[in-house]
Design a binder for these strands. Structure first.
Lengths: 149, 149
DNA sequence: TATTGTTATACTCTATAACTATA
DNA sequence: TATAGTTATAGAGTATAACAATA
């Protein structure tokens, strides 16, 4: 390991811990990490199946199963597009939205004791630094880092 | 969402991106995120099955399958403990260690372009802040955050 | 022909329950 | 009895390949 990979290592370590929190809270509601993310995505989007697969870095056939199981639980709905009748638009249901909001609150509440180890000024600083490496400051690179299955 | 959950949100967003990198690099070597982590854990440990399950937050039966598949690929080995003949110690093989090191290099190289968006001073600062919230500064809280399936 | 989505298949990951073997 | 680990089973997540419907 190169001598100055300390930041990369810290990022990976913290990420595993955050994922552990998400996995636990998800599983308490019978949701996988992927279903959790699906629900989060749908909160402010109404994508077609192909878009979802691209967002999540999954095959479209995987999306079919994912959405099918979420739909069976009443969390999302599938609607055929009137313009292009091949297309399936996916939407979140009221129940799905309610669950997504509750989950986010639980996640934030679980993370809070750890972020509270920092002074308010350091919290702002950390937020800014994370946004910078994620490319969320100014020009929205968003999603550039993701996917590529 | 409370007005000042910005840090929690940034942590979750960055973590998903880091996980996407790990997932992609793992899958290029036919390794799941869990196998990746298993290999990482074994680099400096020689745990029994039960310890591994606790570390990873998995059931012991899940560990059996995980280790069995890794063993079949020659990445890890199982050895019966001489003291307590119920116990199975898991070790990484030379091939497993080599792969683990290559993977870590790939991960760090993939993350580097993003961490390089920061000045060296900010990189050190971010590392310190991440270590602080993860509890890796001074008293080693380690693993406290993890698991709890 | 090309695109959108589903289905069939196969494998990994995961937990629960039942089991074996030690202690 | 209690603990360490495996096996049997079942379901979710995943990709590949083949397919249907639409463009």
């Amino acid at each position: 390991m190169k001598p100055d990979d300390a930041l990369e290592d810290a990022l990976v370590r913290v990420s595993f811990r955050v994922m552990a929190v998400l996995t636990r809270i998800g599983s308490e509601h019978d949701l996988s990490l992927t279903q959790l993310r699906l629900l989060g995505l749908l909160r402010d989007r109404r994508p077609r199946m192909t878009d979802l697969a691209a967002f999540l870095g999954l095959d479209k056939s995987t999306m079919s199963g994912l959405v099918e199981r979420a739909e069976r639980r009443g969390l999302v709905a599938r609607g055929k597009s009137p313009e292009d009748r091949r297309v399936v638009d996916v939407t979140i249901t009221p129940a799905g939205r309610e669950l997504a909001e509750r989950l986010q609150e639980e996640v934030n509440a679980t993370l809070a004791p750890f972020t509270d180890r920092l002074e308010p000024a350091d919290r702002h600083l950390l937020t800014h630094l994370l946004d910078t490496i994620a490319g969320n400051s100014g020009h929205s690179d968003e999603e550039r880092w993701l996917n590529a299955p």
